[in-house]
Design a protein around this nucleic acid. Structure first.
Lengths: 118, 118
DNA sequence: TTAATATATATCATATTACTATGTCTGTCA
DNA sequence: TGACAGACATAGTAATATGATATATATTAA
């Protein structure tokens, strides 16, 4: 897999990525793990440990809720559902990402020709 | 100032931002601080503590070197210069950023309609 | 004159968070 | 029966951005 996305480029986006998946419907840990790989075109893998600690964080902040599935066979699954607050947070994070992208482009690629430091 | 860019959206870009400024010419801490604010259109402020700890990191990794200016009045200035290795790192980081941007767009905004989790 | 502000560098302690390593359990398939 | 995939989970670690704090000089406003 990729390997070109350093962990620090993803840091801060984990929660938004999970919320984006959950706003399309309830899902459980391992499925979300697979979905992220698929969504990235197999370029990026969010480690399971990162996911499960994010779930705890998100649930504590009331951005998601969880319930056990009723699997009669196989490992039991814990499903997650996005809350109203989670959806609002997602929308705000999306705006923030679009905004930050523009600023970062300037900071990373920008020339200093007409910069007024004042 | 802005306030809409959370620290975690910038995390991992600090070094690249500094290297981008230094590849246009030598500069010193406080000027770099001002330049970042100006470059961002006054939307973002990289804290001075963050800057000075980044300088140490960058110098340790041989991405920049430093020398004292010859100011005869006012606070003395420590100038930083980008090294060859620093320039190469900048170019790689720029590629990584462009790549990560595309992946992140998919992960943050992407729909799950045609996702094959396999 | 004095107080505030701008210029300039620096360190320490803290919080956040992503990852490595590790563990447990179930079911399937060769 | 043994490997592998599915599924969840925790403990410890490392990196880094920042708040708080400190020091020193020069300029400007009250």
């Amino acid at each position: 897999m990729g390997g070109r996305i350093s962990t620090d480029l993803i840091r801060g986006h984990t929660d938004t990525i999970i919320l984006n998946i959950l706003r399309h419907g309830d899902s459980y840990g391992y499925e979300i793990y697979k979905t992220i790989i698929a969504l990235s075109g197999r370029q990026y893998e969010l480690k399971e440990a990162t996911l499960y600690s994010a779930f705890r964080r998100l649930e504590q902040d009331d951005l998601i809720t969880s319930y056990w599935g009723d699997e009669t066979q196989g490992g039991r699954r814990k499903y997650y559902r996005i809350t109203k607050k989670g959806l609002e947070t997602y929308e705000q994070n999306l705006k923030d990402w679009r905004f930050a992208k523009g600023i970062l482009d300037k900071l990373i690629e920008g020339g200093l020709e007409n910069v007024d430091r004042q």
